[in-house]
Structure formats: C-alpha cells, structure tokens
Computed example of a mutant assay.
Amino acid sequence: MSPMKTSPRSSVLIDLAAIRHNVAHLLAMLTPGSGILVAVKADAYGHGTLPVARAAVSAGAQGVAVATAEEAVVLRDAGFHESILVMGPLYSFDQYEEMARQRVDFAVVSDHMADLLPSLRGSGLEARVHLKIDSGMNRQGLFPAQVDTFLESIRGIPEIGLAGVMTHFACATEDPASIDFQLERFLPVIERVRQEWPAVLAHAANSAATVHTPRSHLDLVRCGCAVYGLSPWQEDPVAEGLLPALAWKSQVALVKRVDTGEGVGYGHTFRPSAPTDVALIPIGYGDGVFRALSNRGEVLINGRRYPVAGRVSMDSFGVDVGADGRVKVGDEVTLIGADGDDRITVEEVARRLGTINYEITCDIALDRTERRFLNERPDKEPDGSR
C-alpha cells in the first residue's frame, strides 16, 4: 500500500536571504573592530537554529549564542563548528565538562556557577568562559563588587580560560539613557578584568543598542530580533532597513454561507448583520494562532484583508470573506507576510495581542506545520566539512 499523501495545514517559510541581509545590515553599523554574535536560542526565535546559524556565519557573523547547553550540543552534532556561546545558566558539573569537550564557550552567570568552576582543576579539559556582570538588570550575573573574588578563584587554574566579560541591557528600547547608566558600571569591570586577562572580549549590546548606541558595541554585539527582521521597537522593520525572514501561510478549507443573525463558532461571538460567507482556516491555537485574536485578527487572501469571525478554536478559525464569492476552497491564506501589495507583519499581530514580536514567532507550533527554508546557499555556508 502506498503511503497516504499528506497536505500541510500551514507552512512557515524562512527566507535565509533576509537573514543574510539583516546580518550584513547590522555589521555595517558597527564601530571598527567590533563583531557580531547572532542569538539562535529557542530554535532561532522559531526560524530554525542550524539553517539560521549557517546563514548568519556566511554573512559575516563571528558565531552564535544560545541559551542552553542542549542547544549547543544539537548544533555541534549537526556539524556546526563555528563559535558558540551558551548564555546560561548551566546546571551541573557534567555540563561544564561537556561544553569544554565540545569547544563551546559558556557564561558564568551566578554565584553557584562561579563556586563550581574551580572544580575543573585537574580535569585535563580546557573551558572557555565569559563572566557575566549584573550591571543593573538584576537577573543573571555577578555584581561588579564580586569580580575580584571571582578572578582570584580561577587564578592559576590552567583548565579555565577567561574568554569574555559581558552584560545585558534591561531597557534598551524603552529607556535608551539606561544604556549609559549600565555602561558606567560595566566599563570599569572590563578594565579590571583586562589587568589579568588582557585579551578578554567585552560584549553587551543587543539589537536595539547596536542600532542606536555605538558606544556599546565594544568587541562584540549580540543581536537577536533584528537578525530575523523583527523591529526592536515593535515598529515597521522595513523602515529600519530590515527584511522580515518569516512568513506563515495556510489555505481555505471550506467556505460556508451564514445567514443574518446566525452564530459562528464556539459561543456564537460573531453574528453577521447580513448574509456572508465564512471561510474556515484549518489551524488554531494548537498551532500558534492566539485565541485572543478571536474577532480581532485579520488575514490576507488574494491580496485582500479579511477579519477573523468568531472564536479561534484549537484547530481552526473562521474568516468573514463577504458575499461576493471571491474566496474559494484552496486559496492561500497569509497570517504573517506579504500578499499582493499588502503585508501583515509580526509586529502588527503582536500589537493586537499586547505583546512583543518574537513571542509570536516563538509560539508557532512547528510539530503541526511544515517549515521550509528559502534561498539556501549550501555551497557558501558552513556545513561541518572542516
């Protein structure tokens, strides 16, 4: 028996040419001598860790940053041999050892990690670590007053190499002046660390700081959202010189005429004031279409906008497509991306929901959709052949 033919209920399309453009755009902003690490944590914000990592490096990035040791191992196992930084935390000594064996840098982000680090003495491994400084975010990192104690704790341990010193900005988009406040705390730490580790790399800037605060570029910047064509300010990314990399498409599964006053979907929260057609889109909140978009969201079909009609269900939602008969079964539906002269941006969806753009991309359920990569360049991107 031949296998059943499958038809994807939706498709996430990732344009790797857009990733390369955005990396090049950010590199052009940097002060001389500064490089870029691309944040590919959380499956590259829903865009695909390995393809994005390869595309970013091919466009000039020095490497990538992830959140967990497991994310780093996945990249190494897939043949990605470029620089990786785990921004942490790590949770056990065996993770320290594995990161050293895999030649993955990791950040020391807590007292517990700092206390455990000297246990590498005598292991025969070589660990490259980045000391994270809490300069005002009050989340991860050691305070500046703890730096001397940390440096003393690793002094004379050949298995530990201090490769970087880093911090993270708390309010780079909301209050750019806070960047200077945090830098005033961070810059003296860099000077102190370089008294013993003169080659240490200093890095702090996220996407927003990279764009508007050149003073924060230091040796490296760590960019996430802008690499994906997502606006750090939740505005129009194209106006900021970025190209959105993600589009999300589905299709019309059925079209049904609904008479005046009839209810649609759970709770009958939509009742048309005149006869209309309701198109069923075969994805719902189980796929990442937020239920809060019920009677609030919009989609594009054949280049025209249509409103969500009724509640978003787990596996489907309705769209009021009017009574003109233009919309047919099988027509492409755009939830995110361009169709004709119009575009629905991730930022637009996020504004409707009162959240940020990359929550939207991270929440697409990739186990219920297909993801396809456009404009790959396998002949020019690192593939583990080294």
Results as ranks from 00 to 15, higher is better:
286 G>M: 03
289 V>K: 04
292 A>N: 09
306 Y>H: 12
314 M>P: 02
294 S>A: 13
318 G>R: 09
288 G>C: 04
289 V>N: 00
310 G>V: 09
330 G>H: 06
308 V>H: 10
318 G>F: 06
310 G>I: 09
326 R>V: 06
308 V>F: 15
296 R>I: 05
295 N>M: 09
296 R>E: 09
333 V>I: 08
332 E>L: 11
309 A>E: 11
308 V>C: 14
286 G>Q: 08
290 F>Q: 09
310 G>L: 07
289 V>S: 02
332 E>H: 08
286 G>P: 01
312 V>N: 08
320 D>C: 02
290 F>L: 09
310 G>Y: 03
295 N>E: 13
304 R>I: 03
313 S>V: 01
318 G>C: 07
302 N>D: 14
287 D>K: 05
308 V>E: 04
303 G>K: 10
324 D>A: 12
317 F>N: 02
313 S>G: 15
289 V>P: 02
299 V>I: 14
310 G>R: 07
320 D>P: 00
315 D>A: 10
327 V>C: 05
333 V>N: 08
318 G>D: 05
335 L>I: 13
288 G>E: 00
288 G>Y: 06
286 G>E: 03
333 V>G: 10
289 V>G: 00
320 D>N: 13
293 L>V: 08
325 G>M: 04
300 L>K: 06
327 V>G: 06
304 R>H: 13
333 V>C: 10
333 V>Y: 00
302 N>S: 15
288 G>A: 04
311 R>W: 00
322 G>K: 07
303 G>L: 11
287 D>R: 05
309 A>P: 13
306 Y>K: 00
317 F>H: 05
318 G>M: 06
315 D>K: 00
286 G>W: 03
299 V>W: 07
286 G>L: 06
306 Y>P: 00
329 V>N: 09
299 V>D: 05
292 A>S: 12
335 L>D: 05
330 G>R: 02
324 D>N: 12
296 R>C: 09
327 V>P: 04
292 A>L: 12
317 F>Y: 13
309 A>Q: 09
315 D>C: 00
288 G>K: 08
307 P>V: 12
297 G>K: 03
307 P>A: 15
330 G>N: 07
319 V>M: 03
289 V>I: 14
327 V>K: 03
294 S>L: 10
313 S>I: 01
296 R>H: 11
310 G>W: 05
319 V>P: 01
320 D>K: 00
